[in-house]
Lab assay of single mutants.
Amino acid sequence: AVCQRCQARFSPAERIVNSNGELYHEHCFVCAQCFRPFPEGLFYEFEGRKYCEHDFQML
């Protein structure tokens, strides 16, 4: 399997985020606008991209 964002493979010891069947490295699972991790894992999706609450409100 490969990361949805960076397309790199996962190492066996690595923590992986699964979002609706899409797999991400922990450091790749970030807001599409500000590139920060999601507070408490909370995000909003718009047109296939994931956003933090602040950036989602700015759309």
Rank of each mutant, 00 (worst) to 15 (best):
A1L: 08
V2S: 03
V2T: 12
C3P: 00
C3N: 02
Q4E: 08
Q4A: 03
Q4S: 13
R5N: 10
R5T: 14
R5A: 15
C6S: 01
A8C: 13
A8E: 15
R9G: 12
R9P: 13
F10T: 09
P12N: 09
P12M: 12
A13M: 06
E14K: 03
E14I: 02
R15P: 11
I16A: 09
I16W: 08
I16G: 07
V17F: 11
N18L: 02
S19R: 14
N20I: 03
N20W: 03
G21Y: 03
G21T: 05
G21N: 10
L23T: 12
L23R: 13
Y24K: 06
Y24E: 05
Y24C: 09
H25K: 00
H25R: 01
H27G: 05
C28E: 02
C28Q: 01
F29M: 14
V30P: 02
V30T: 10
V30C: 09
V30G: 06
V30R: 09
C31R: 01
C31I: 01
C31L: 01
A32V: 12
A32I: 09
Q33P: 02
Q33A: 13
Q33I: 11
Q33W: 07
C34D: 01
F35R: 15
F35L: 13
F35M: 11
R36C: 11
P37G: 04
P37C: 07
P37H: 03
F38K: 06
F38L: 13
F38E: 03
F38V: 08
P39G: 08
P39N: 07
P39K: 10
E40Q: 09
E40K: 11
E40D: 11
E40N: 06
G41V: 02
G41I: 01
G41D: 09
L42Y: 02
L42D: 11
F43C: 06
F43I: 05
F43T: 12
F43W: 15
Y44C: 12
Y44A: 04
Y44N: 14
F46W: 12
F46I: 03
F46A: 11
F46L: 13
F46K: 07
E47T: 03
G48W: 01
G48K: 10
R49S: 12
R49Q: 12
K50R: 11
K50M: 15
K50E: 05
K50W: 07
K50F: 05
Y51V: 12
Y51S: 00
Y51K: 05
C52G: 01
C52W: 00
E53T: 06
D55Q: 01
D55A: 02
D55C: 13
F56I: 10
F56T: 09
M58S: 13
M58T: 15
M58L: 13
L59A: 13
L59H: 15
L59I: 14
